[in-house]
Design a protein around this nucleic acid. Structure first.
Lengths: 192, 192
DNA sequence: GTCTATACTTTGATAGAC
DNA sequence: GTCTATCAAAGTATAGAC
């Protein structure tokens, strides 16, 4: 059984691949470019990732983990659930300094075939996020928590997309302000 | 200079191409599939569209025209500008019965290269739409019309994206309700 | 002359062999 | 790491039908 040559090999490959995928899109990046970027041989890459699909899936799962980390960090930093929702929107604004938007959203758009693993992995992620946001909203005193969660999800989706075309600054301010107002309105509706 | 043999040729090609592009994405559709779908020869297609890029651009411009028609229809049907904004969101909800979202958004995600014509055409469309929405918002008594316009744009973007993953019904209701509340809130802010 | 159908060339990709 | 097999796609050219 072949041993791993260096412990960080898998991560290094993923670093290079993620950078290229983020900037140019998955379809436009060939395996050879990734190999050249890593600076190692073909064997090594194909040992870690038997096919490009495997590599893409690993890339998506890593992006999903980045979201999970953000969620955990925000929940650990901010106390009130209603503030957590707003802070998540602000965190998304900060997560996309480039103008290309969300890796999972972009890759999802690149693989419309429902049978493709990249499509399935990204789709499951969005369903998970929706449930997480609804769960957070249920801890607030909002009148309709599921509606609040879905609205925050819509704002985050719009932020990713608008930010990739209109620039992150303008769209970011719009999204955060809107999220604040939405949360406030839902809480106020409860007070009535 | 060769004349058009049949007047509807160009439209027929675009019909077939748009259907395939919408369902499977631009990259996944080969010129041969479009030719097979139309039932014509290669010469004819390449006479109307000298390259695939030309065809994609025509496809995008046609989608942009569909938006322009929707905008004109809503403005002609509804009187109050604040109702027009909400009605636009509702119209977008109806325009995406499939689960693939906006053709312009999807194609934009498929062509990240800023030098590619498909990227430029779609980008210009989004800038135009943003200005149109701001212009509509300026006719309302909203306190901050540009902010209102940007918020509606964010909602429309989010609707396209959320609808493509969570289904158009749930996301549509969320987006329309949110748009109503946003418009109402901006008008109320003016009343103060 | 105009359209269909097919063959061909070039390019670039994945993936495996050594 | 290099070299190669395989395949798919864009675009061109050509042969032939109405």
């Amino acid at each position: 059984m072949p041993r791993k040559p260096a412990p960080g090999t898998r991560e290094r490959i993923l670093d290079v691949a993620a950078d290229l995928f983020d900037r140019r899109g998955v379809h436009a990046v060939g395996m050879q470019q990734i190999i050249d970027g890593v600076g190692c041989g073909k064997q090594l890459l194909y040992r870690e990732f038997p096919s490009k699909d495997h590599l893409v899936v690993a890339y998506l799962e890593r992006s999903a983990q980045a979201w999970a980390s953000t969620l955990a960090r925000v929940c650990a930093t901010v106390d009130a659930p209603e503030d957590q929702l707003v802070e998540l929107v602000r965190a998304v604004q900060g997560m996309a300094p480039n103008t290309r938007g969300c890796p999972l959203r972009n890759t999802h758009a690149e693989f419309p075939d429902p049978g493709h693993p990249a499509h399935q992995v990204s789709l499951k992620h969005f369903q998970d996020v929706r449930e997480q946001l609804r769960e957070l909203a249920r801890r607030t005193p909002a009148a309709h928590p599921d509606r609040l969660g879905d609205r925050i999800m819509l704002i985050i989706d719009g932020l990713y997309v608008s930010g990739s075309t209109l620039g992150p600054t303008g769209a970011g301010a719009t999204a955060v302000g809107l999220a604040q107002d939405v949360v406030r309105a839902e809480i106020a509706a409860q007070a009535v």
